[in-house]
Simulated assay, not measured.
Amino acid sequence: MWDPATYLTYGDLRGRPFHELLARVPAERPRRVVDAGCGPGNLTATLPRRWPSARLEALDSSPEMVEAARAEGVAAELADVGTWTPKPDTDVLISNATLQWVPGHADLLRRWVGELPSGAWLALQVPGNFDAPSHVLTRRLAASEQWRTRLADVSLRGADAVGDPEDYADLLADAGCAVDAWETTYVQRLEGDDAVLEWITGTALRPIRAALGDADWAEFRGELAELLAEAYPQRADGTTWLPFRRVFVVAHTP
């Protein structure tokens, strides 16, 4: 289950890559704009200001996120991004911080390119920080002797969950697209105690939280907090720097 409130704790920081991605999409009057993996809808709700004449379509696989998006005034639908098919008039397809949850999404991107109309825009952004200490330490703790039995059924994503910009550029160029691919590392300023732990609780730690009861979850969080505090030391002013790499791709279909 997703917790929209936890996810939105750092809404401004999570939203910045979305806006920087969309700034590189020069579509002028698209017929249909799709947000595939709309989450709580706070970013999707900004799209009509950019393209007021477009028909807006939004989908997410989480019932909690769909409910939150509808509360934002977005007519979101519950759907699996991995099996969803774009309608023939889809001129802009956005996937923001979603495809890292879809195994084998390279094949999905090839399919989408073949299904989108000529001259459509495909814009995606995925986190590229799976080899950062926040994720490495989480996987290491989960695999430790103390936790591996209790978390035997939990699969945590590694660095192979997403590609590098060159990987996506090659894939989409081979499919006939004109491609703009880049990466950005944001040095995020987080406030409060255990700030990095709170950040990943809304995303990376979801599978672990779902597998543990309340007492075990509190114990796991406590142990991980100590590891993260050493990797990401809190500054004297109470803030913590979290370097966060993200991968961006904008493709124009042939």
Rank of each mutant, 00 (worst) to 15 (best):
P4K: 10
T6Y: 00
T6L: 15
G11R: 15
D12K: 15
D12P: 02
R14K: 14
R14M: 07
G15Q: 11
G15C: 04
F18G: 01
H19I: 00
L22E: 05
R24A: 14
V25H: 11
P26G: 13
P30Q: 11
R32M: 14
V33C: 11
V33T: 06
V33M: 10
D35K: 09
A36K: 09
G37F: 09
G37K: 12
N42K: 00
T44L: 12
T44P: 10
A45Q: 07
L56D: 07
A58N: 07
D60S: 12
D60K: 14
S61P: 05
P63K: 11
M65A: 12
V74Y: 08
A76P: 02
D80A: 11
V81G: 01
T83G: 07
P88C: 11
D89I: 04
D91G: 13
I94D: 01
S95V: 07
A97V: 12
L99K: 07
W101T: 00
H105F: 08
H105R: 03
L109R: 10
R110V: 12
R111T: 01
R111E: 08
W112D: 03
E115C: 02
L116Q: 06
L116T: 04
S118I: 01
P127T: 07
G128F: 06
G128Y: 06
N129Y: 06
A132H: 10
A132T: 07
S134K: 00
H135Q: 14
V136W: 03
L137S: 01
T138N: 00
T138C: 11
R140E: 13
L141W: 10
L141Y: 02
E145M: 08
W147K: 08
T149Y: 12
R150I: 09
L151F: 12
A152N: 06
S155G: 09
A159P: 06
D160N: 09
V162L: 05
V162W: 01
G163P: 02
G163L: 09
D164A: 15
P165M: 07
A169Y: 07
L172P: 15
D174N: 13
G176T: 12
D180L: 15
A181R: 04
W182N: 09
E183V: 02
E183S: 15
T184D: 02
T184L: 11
T185Y: 01
L190Y: 03
G192P: 06
V196Y: 05
L197W: 01
W199R: 03
I200W: 03
T201M: 07
T201I: 04
I208R: 05
G213V: 09
D214F: 10
D214C: 09
D216L: 14
W217M: 14
A218D: 15
R221N: 10
P233R: 01
P233H: 02
A236M: 05
F248H: 14
A251M: 05
H252N: 14
H252D: 03
